[in-house]
Design a protein around this nucleic acid. Structure first.
Lengths: 255, 255
DNA sequence: TGCATCCCTTGATCAAAATCAACCTGCCGC
DNA sequence: GCGGCAGGTTGATTTTGATCAAGGGATGCA
């Protein structure tokens, strides 16, 4: 389903550290919600978009404040976390390129959002974006569908958190990364069964994502390595040596 | 923000076991998504709605099939579960009166939905409802907002599943029930600090909701009972004797 | 070059919750 | 009233992953 944007010339509006971008050259457009919009809607959304660069660790929103902007991840990953009063924390969502960041029409962000790696964002100021969503039902429709896919992912993760063992959690995480990172072109896959990529999270973040301690995560990586299922390079690099065998040894080591 | 439906006479269409209902007498309308619709939208939605009664345990959808209808819970509770190939299962959502059941525009339901108790549903056939959602942006808007609130609840639950202790999980569950059941009028609260209600789930379902075993759930109930925080009547009846003290003894028993 | 820091790994021990196993209890049909 | 059964409780034991503790390796800076 090919689409052309046609000719349009959004008036460039410049502000400190921000540049007007054009959807024409956008690499994630087809996978993002913009990919399903028509030319008018795309022009409208392009008019209010500003590129934003975030360094790893940079906060986007606090859980109890209304965010000033929403956005679509162009590169890198954004993590969403919830924290208990005593400091225990849980990563409740991880956003990859083409994912939408933020909750239009909600008063509170609901969780802390921060850049897990360096991030490029196609950002939309909250107010104008909400107006656009109201004016163009197609935008609202795409937002709804994205919310449903996020809900579905959250429910899969609940099954993981509530019922899977440490080994199964780590393998599920690797397979999830393999899926998301290869579809967004962030993985260097040799064959269909072998895949190399950089983990977007530290050991401690992985622990907070899986509901484990970082020691347990580290040990499980070591176990998978000793089974020749994965290879580790430095602290962030991973190679899945055999995706099928990794899936097969989900619950128990395979001979 | 008062609303009136005005006069309208939907043509009654009868089918086996189904009756046309009127939104005028609907008890959950104000809290459900219908509460935010205008007269035209309400009439349109009323035209396609059929009341449906489900007995406890009755299946609504399987996770890999497209549901034939969506609905709004009028009474009772609906549980959403995910299952691992070996049978381990996790309840990933619980729907109360005024909540919307189903995922419009998705090909698969994503999880098993079944009546946890006897349920009354205001049901909408899938196709016509999706057409309505496309025709009336306000309906889509309400669906979107409901999806966001579900997402938020799911994320709170992820924090519970990943980071809370058994005691904290059980207390969180009781407080969640207290909130949802009292706002939907299903609890007999004596004072603001004391609340009595029937658990909508069996011990084993509670275990599947909290990511625990049923033995652990049973033991935690017993502990809370011995601390005089709750009282148990039969297997489903609970009285929270002091909501504040229950909240305060979240992590550790209070003297 | 050396020191400090951050992140990760590894080992020893501990504890929370799972598992295994009876045993109640209330409810149903007969 | 009696047997059977589902759901719930209780106890003994085991296990998984947490906790406590120490050490390693990369990176940055003086």
């Amino acid at each position: 389903m090919e689409r052309t944007i046609g000719k349009f010339n959004p008036q460039p509006k410049h502000a400190a550290g921000e540049v007007t971008i054009s959807c024409e050259s956008c690499l994630v457009r087809d996978q993002a919600l913009c990919g399903k919009l028509n030319v008018d809607e795309l022009i409208a959304i392009n008019q209010i978009s500003r590129r934003r660069r975030l360094k790893a660790g940079q906060r986007i929103t606090l859980d109890d404040e209304a965010p000033e902007y929403f956005g679509i991840v162009l590169s890198g990953s954004v993590k969403l976390t919830k924290v208990l009063p005593d400091g225990r924390q849980q990563i409740v969502g991880l956003l990859f390129p083409s994912d939408f960041v933020g909750r239009p029409f909600e008063q509170q962000a609901g969780c802390h959002a921060e850049a897990a790696t360096d991030v490029n964002l196609c950002a939309f100021p909250a107010g104008p974006f909400e107006r656009l969503a109201r004016d163009y039902p197609a935008i609202q429709h795409q937002l709804f569908r994205f919310a449903l896919s996020q809900l579905s992912a959250a429910q899969d993760w609940m099954l993981l958190l509530g019922r899977k063992t440490a080994r199964e959690k780590v393998i599920s995480l690797l397979l999830m990364f393999a899926g998301r990172l290869s579809e967004t072109g962030c993985a260097a896959g040799k064959t269909s069964n072998r895949l190399e990529f950089a983990l977007p999270l530290s050991r401690s973040d992985i622990a907070d994502y899986l509901g484990l301690t970082l020691e347990t995560v580290s040990r499980q990586f070591r176990v998978l390595k000793s089974e020749e299922l994965i290879r580790l390079h430095g602290s962030r690099g991973v190679t899945i040596l055999d995706l099928d065998r990794l899936r097969a040894s989900f619950s128990h080591p395979t001979a």
